[in-house]
Simulated scan of single mutants.
Amino acid sequence: MKKAYYITQIGALERRGNTLFFVNENEKRPIPINSTSEVHCFKPVSLTSGAIKLLSEKNVPVHFYNKYGYYRGSYMPAEGQISGTVVIKQAEHHLDQDKRLHIASQFVEGIKASMIALLKSQRADYRPIADIPVEGSSPAELMGVESNLWREFYGLYSTLLKHFDFSERNRRPPRDEVNAMISYGNSVLYGVALSEIRKTYLHPAISFLHEPLERRYSLALDMADIFKPVTVFRVILRLVNRRQIREEHFDREIGVMLNRKGLKVFLSELNSELGKKVLHPRFRRNVSIRYLIRLEGYSLVKHLLGDGEYKSLRAWW
């Protein structure tokens, strides 16, 4: 299984022969391009033409984030998995209200199930989440249900944190340490979901729960949300309660952000979580959580082609 590569310093990606290097005034570090799924840049990083060519040959995207961890954009190699039939079917299901509602409601059911799975793993009260019905006659109404789920989840989640206060979700910029980590984690998960969607035949800009917008791959938002509670929020809880992340891991300017040391701790733990293997109940084999995102895409493709009814992932770990 290929792994993500994270860059937390200013520099450049360059090609020397058939090797990709990260270069700045202090170091020249090779990047194992053949075992890299994508590159995440949290500081300004330039790409030489040689690096772009090599990244394209190896089909490795590069995702860029600002200092608060917000996604800014990507270098995306030419699509490697293309199917006109799937894209047409995907557009048809987006345009048909009933078909879109089925898929959108499944996304919300998956989000709800992941919230419950995390709370159960902590022996916390999950009934306020379980009691919210996933109902709606439009994607906008389902987005309202999702908002209610997150509101309840944040309240329950805050009681599990031992060393940082967390009362509400805030951003642009985050006003506290937990919100800073949520912003970084959500953005990375979005980038990972985008990378995995590209390995299926799905078009990442045709979504079902979120509205498609220019300059945003909204299907990645749809699919990433299913996995946030059991990846991003699980990692934050572990790091905070074990005191692996502390006050000195943050900078406070306009808002709060992880400093370089804190970012390395956080990204290492998140990367490990995404690579963690769980026994898949249907396939009866161990698969990484990252690969589950791709399997979610494959399940959606089967639904679009009429080979089975899409049911979103119900997290069990």
Results as ranks from 00 to 15, higher is better:
1 M>Y: 00
3 K>T: 02
23 V>L: 15
24 N>H: 12
24 N>F: 10
27 E>C: 12
33 I>P: 07
34 N>E: 15
38 E>C: 10
42 F>D: 05
47 L>T: 07
49 S>I: 03
52 I>E: 09
58 K>A: 11
59 N>M: 08
59 N>K: 13
63 H>Q: 10
64 F>Y: 15
67 K>L: 15
70 Y>M: 14
73 G>H: 07
73 G>L: 06
82 I>F: 04
92 E>P: 02
103 I>L: 05
104 A>C: 08
107 F>T: 07
108 V>I: 12
112 K>S: 04
118 L>G: 00
120 K>G: 00
122 Q>V: 00
124 A>D: 06
127 R>S: 03
129 I>A: 01
131 D>F: 06
136 G>E: 02
140 A>V: 12
141 E>W: 00
148 N>W: 08
149 L>F: 07
151 R>M: 05
155 G>I: 05
159 T>K: 13
160 L>M: 12
168 E>M: 14
176 D>R: 08
181 M>W: 13
193 A>K: 00
195 S>E: 01
197 I>W: 01
200 T>K: 00
221 L>I: 13
221 L>P: 10
226 I>N: 14
230 V>R: 12
231 T>P: 12
232 V>I: 12
232 V>T: 14
232 V>A: 08
234 R>P: 11
238 R>F: 14
240 V>L: 12
253 E>V: 03
262 G>C: 11
270 L>A: 06
277 K>L: 04
278 V>K: 03
279 L>W: 05
284 R>M: 12
288 S>N: 06
289 I>Y: 06
291 Y>G: 05
293 I>F: 11
298 Y>S: 13
300 L>S: 10
303 H>T: 08
313 L>A: 01
316 W>Y: 12
317 W>L: 05
